[in-house]
Design a protein around this nucleic acid. Structure first.
Length: 421
DNA sequence: ACCAAGACTTGGATTAAAGGAA
DNA sequence: TTCCTTTAATCCAAGTCTTGGT
């Protein structure tokens, strides 16, 4: 692997990564972090390979070496931004008449809106989700809202709904997709490529950049992870009227689909997103942003690694300082010091506060509660052992037993008496 | 100084594509 | 070719961290 290696004295000047595009650069950085580097295999053989190689070479020549340029220091992220707007999810196509839905053993023809939501459920039928109580309850509640009043009065019990025929129809569909001929597959691929060419790029400051997610998220049922209180709720369809477009004043504003208009068009160069909308499950904002290969992402990523690198210059000081704070008379300082120690020693996530009832109950270092740790003066021949057992990100269990310094242990005892930590 | 909203990163799951053996 | 396995790309929820308003 080719790389110029005088990293030790990096002064933040981008001389290093000359021969790599940013994607590779990122990989390279990851390899430095990883214990085992991945093999770099790009065997391209035959005539096709020759063409491919030439194409790649050409692209490389045209590549912009953003890491050799000056960076903004204020909050300005760009001066020119133009794009084609998002690609919306395809409209709902009703299932053919021979695909049946049954309620209480009797066949029912659903109205298009109710049917669409029913298909979302049908598509997930053999997923464990659909057996969960919370999921079913949330789904049922949102589904009813989409029904006509006749349907509402007819359908009163989810357990009497039979989605199996719908489900097998979709299974057959995806099977059929796999069995398509070469030409059919090729046609789809080309059509896809056309979309990418048209909507997959934007111009930011004189450079054509790849957009990461130019397609709006399609409607469906929300799949929260862990035991999420909102799983199964209907993720509604996003229309142009929900969309905020961000681009520069002197750019060509993308037209909304005919008969529609955007919620808003703004020109905010202090942010990096091109399109945003508010999602209906948590009320949070979703964005369309650029690819990791773009300047805006690559620069930030690079900065991150440089920051990490600078850590070694001050890590000793930090460690001494938190050890000192274990004795502080301020309880807050002690808590911070112990938390920092765990983050340092165990690489725990920081752990921000979360809104109760809105999301699954998960914690990180700073949001650990008394019930998440146990203290053992002695365990398996070791002194001052802390046992961690808590649901972390995505409700994944973190379980670990670690011997700690006596001071840390004493502090934890103190915190737990006072119901903090 | 506080806190909610906003912006952006991370990483697991899902799907698509590529590779490889039969 | 066909079928299975591995890898890569995409999707999107769940985090972290920053910002701006009070």
């Amino acid at each position: 692997m080719k790389r110029s290696r005088d990293d030790e004295d990096s002064d933040y000047k981008p001389k290093k990564i000359k021969t790599e595009d940013s994607k590779k650069a990122k990989k390279r950085k990851q390899e430095e972090v990883d214990v085992k580097p991945k093999k770099n295999k790009n065997k391209v053989k035959g005539q096709e390979g020759e063409v491919k190689r030439k194409k790649v070479k050409k692209e490389e020549e045209e590549k912009w070496k953003w890491w050799e340029e000056e960076r903004h220091t204020d909050g300005v992220k760009w001066t020119f931004l133009e794009h084609k707007g998002p690609v919306f999810a395809p409209p709902y196509e009703p299932v053919p008449d021979n695909v049946k839905f049954y309620y209480d053993g009797k066949q029912v023809k659903l109205s298009p809106k109710a049917e669409e939501v029913a298909t979302f459920f049908a598509k997930m039928l053999d997923h464990e989700y659909t057996t969960k109580d919370v999921f079913r309850k949330n789904f049922y509640k949102d589904w009813k809202k989409e029904m006509t009043s006749e349907e509402q009065s007819l359908i009163t019990n989810l357990s009497k709904c039979d989605f199996t025929h719908m489900s097998s129809y979709f299974k057959a569909q995806s099977e059929a997709r796999k069995q398509m001929t070469k030409q059919e597959k090729q046609k789809i691929k080309e059509e896809n490529e056309r979309l990418v060419q048209e909507y997959g790029y934007c111009v930011m400051d004189n450079h054509k950049e790849r957009i990461a997610n130019f397609r709006i998220e399609p409607p469906g049922l929300f799949r929260g992870r862990g035991n999420h209180p909102k799983m199964g709720k209907l993720k509604r369809r996003i229309n142009p009227e929900n969309i905020i477009i961000n681009c520069s004043k002197d750019s060509k504003v993308p037209p909304a689909p005919s008969g529609h208009k955007w919620k808003e068009v703004r020109h905010d160069n202090k942010v990096t997103w091109l399109v945003s909308w508010t999602e209906n499950i948590q009320g949070s904002i979703k964005y369309i942003m650029l690819n990791p290969s773009s300047r805006i992402k690559g620069e930030k990523d690079w900065q991150k690694y440089e920051t990490a690198r600078r850590l070694k210059l001050c890590v000793d000081k930090i460690r001494n300082s938190y050890k000192e704070d274990w004795k502080s008379k301020e309880m807050k300082a002690r808590q911070r010091a112990v938390a920092l120690y765990f983050i340092d020693k165990l690489a725990l996530r920081a752990g921000n506060e979360k809104e109760e009832g809105e999301t699954a109950d998960t914690v990180g270092c700073c949001s650990l509660r008394v019930e998440h740790i146990k203290l053992f003066l002695e365990m398996d021949g070791q002194e001052y052992v802390v046992e961690f057992d808590f649901p972390g990100k995505d409700s994944i269990r973190y379980y670990n037993k670690v011997p700690v310094e006596k001071r840390v242990f004493k502090n934890l005892q103190l915190f737990m008496e006072k119901q903090t930590t």
